[in-house]
Design a protein around this nucleic acid. Structure first.
Lengths: 209, 209, 209, 209
DNA sequence: AATGAATGAGACTTCATTCAT
DNA sequence: CATGAATGAAGTCTCATTCAT
């Protein structure tokens, strides 16, 4: 069987490879110097390609940042949906474990590469109204996801019966957001912050009598 | 006594007035069209002044956005420190009331003018590394402030004795942040979100037996 | 009376002056090197101004060529309508004289500066569909004008009664056009060509018995 | 006898065929969108060939337009020289018939495909100084041709003895040119214009007593 | 003090052409 | 022989900033 008989030719694969490299290089540049301070020439130079080549792969500068964000979103949702489904747990302690796992997954993504939250939270929203909306969409999506987890818990009785799932979901996601932002400066505090987050989340801060 | 004899002359007052108007106009523009999409000419045109005049009041384009942020920060801290001090309360219910008041104050600022959170959270961080740091400074400041409230509560015994005040403060502020961002799209949900926030904050989401 | 009291300030006059200089420089460049081979930088350099200045006076490159054409059209129509009206003549010999005058006026414009026909006939039509239409409009206008002269002659009886004025007008204008094009190469033949043109126009080429 | 033994191999014929198709496609594109707005890729795409292939048949973009013009010129001269020679007529009425035939042939070419005059008169001259000269050469050639017809008529006595053949030739050709241009907008007027043209040409516009 | 005309650095983008496959 | 990926020169246009009036 020759390689030319394969559905994806070597040339095609190489093309996809370069496409990916451009996305990665653009991510590097945008995260490092910011979207507006980055020129197409910078992205191209980082790869050692001509800047005309960039335009063979992406429509324009605005185009690629969408793909960069696509990529990050895929990375995050991939990590989250990997092994955790809302209905995979049935007790509070299982839920705690699950949320710890989720927290760890997020911590890994955000903590290991602070450029991810930097680009998503600090760079992207300022690019454009459209991009700001995309980020807000992401928040909405995350809220819906978290709300599903909460609903499941309310149904099974291990979460408060009177929980306002939607708004509580947003509050919890806000805590995650706060952690992500904090980790931009103090990535070493990640673990403690996750712990504090879960403590608040489950039990609140009020003293119990 | 003539006005010219006063320490602040009429001309000086007028200058300060225009300075303020420029800041306000810049805020309007930046929030409306974004920092990069706004030209100095836009700001000047909004005031009906020549754009050369701008440079008699501010060093450059980058300069003014600092002042705009100064202004917003002052507005927020002013609202917060107005009547609430960490040591003004001594019981849990008083604390709940106080945090409700603070929440209302924040809601007023963020909810009444969504351009405030939009500029602070969506525009500013993407301008510059320096500006991003300023925003992170703000988060740190807010964390310290919140931590002070929590410490006070721990000392007086109405909050958990084992509270990790610093990290918990960041988690709580994250919830506020989440509320602020949500209110960009659904300002009408403000009250419910504040309520949910406080519910999580004090009691968590876990069912009590 | 101070100059500032005048309706047109010195600054305003200077602005109009530069505007005119830019149009002239653009005309020079377009006629010399062609529209597409001319860069805005070339036009600016010819005047010793920054190329950014150009954009203070004209929207873009396409914009100015319209003004250049406006200018040439005004020059031509100005020369034509100066002293000649269709109803100013009443006999054939007067008409011959009038057409000789018109021919001389056109010869002066086209012959003295071959760049005028070059730009109007050789450069402009290839710029754009819109510009080509403009040039065709000019031909239509010229045809209407010539037709008016012919109609007058038919009415007064010194031109053939059965003249197809519209199509004959186009034929005559074609001869003028041919003369203009010929003069691009052999300007010295202008007079002889005009003479031959008028000879054909009035009497045709057929021998008379 | 196999085809490979023939002086022009099948491969060679195929090559010539594609060459011709490229010229035609280029003509289509240039006439449709203009020379400068047409990219080599457009021409190639119209044929479904790779745009690299173009360069195996033509030196460069400038090269092909020369061939396109060659082609059009051949088409026109072919139609003109087909059956009409200056010395084929010997009386005025025969000459009238001959010029009617020539006029019809031109009308067929220009009228049936307005892209021919459009490219020759509106696109080509603006491409280049060299191309403008080529078009002027064409006018000169046409003038010489027409002059030959006129000379013949003068010699045989059916045209005015004192005819300035060269300049009259240019005047007549100008009328043809005017007709061609007019037919860009009103192709339906072709016949009437040709008639008016011939009327002027032979008898002029002046009334006869 | 206010103005806005002038400036030019600099960014994006296109596309004719080359050349390795 | 055909292809199309890569290239970079070149051109258009914007806009922050300066400075003479």
């Amino acid at each position: 069987m020759t390689s030319s008989a394969e559905p994806v030719s070597r040339a095609e694969r190489k093309k996809q490879e370069l496409r990916r490299e451009i996305i990665d290089a653009a991510f590097d540049c945008f995260a490092e110097r910011g979207y507006h301070a980055t020129g197409i020439a910078d992205v191209a130079a980082r790869l050692g390609i001509g800047h005309g080549t960039f335009y063979r792969y992406f429509q324009n500068k605005r185009d690629i940042v969408d793909h960069v964000v696509d990529d990050l979103v895929a990375r995050i949702t991939g990590a989250l949906t990997a092994e955790n489904a809302p209905d995979a747990v049935s007790t509070l302690s299982e839920y705690r474990e699950q949320s710890a796992r989720i927290g760890e997954a997020l911590a890994r993504i955000f903590g290991e590469d602070p450029r991810v939250p930097r680009l998503l939270l600090f760079e992207a929203p300022g690019i454009d109204r459209a991009m700001a909306e995309r980020i807000l969409d992401l928040f909405d999506l995350a809220a819906a996801l978290t709300a599903a987890y909460l609903s499941h818990g309310v149904e099974l009785g291990y979460l408060r019966a009177d929980l306002d799932v939607d708004n509580t979901a947003r509050a919890i996601n806000g805590m995650i957001l706060g952690t992500a932002i904090s980790s931009l400066r103090t990535p070493e505090a990640q673990a403690a912050q996750s712990e504090a987050l879960r403590r608040v989340m489950y039990d609140g801060i009020a003293a119990r009598d």
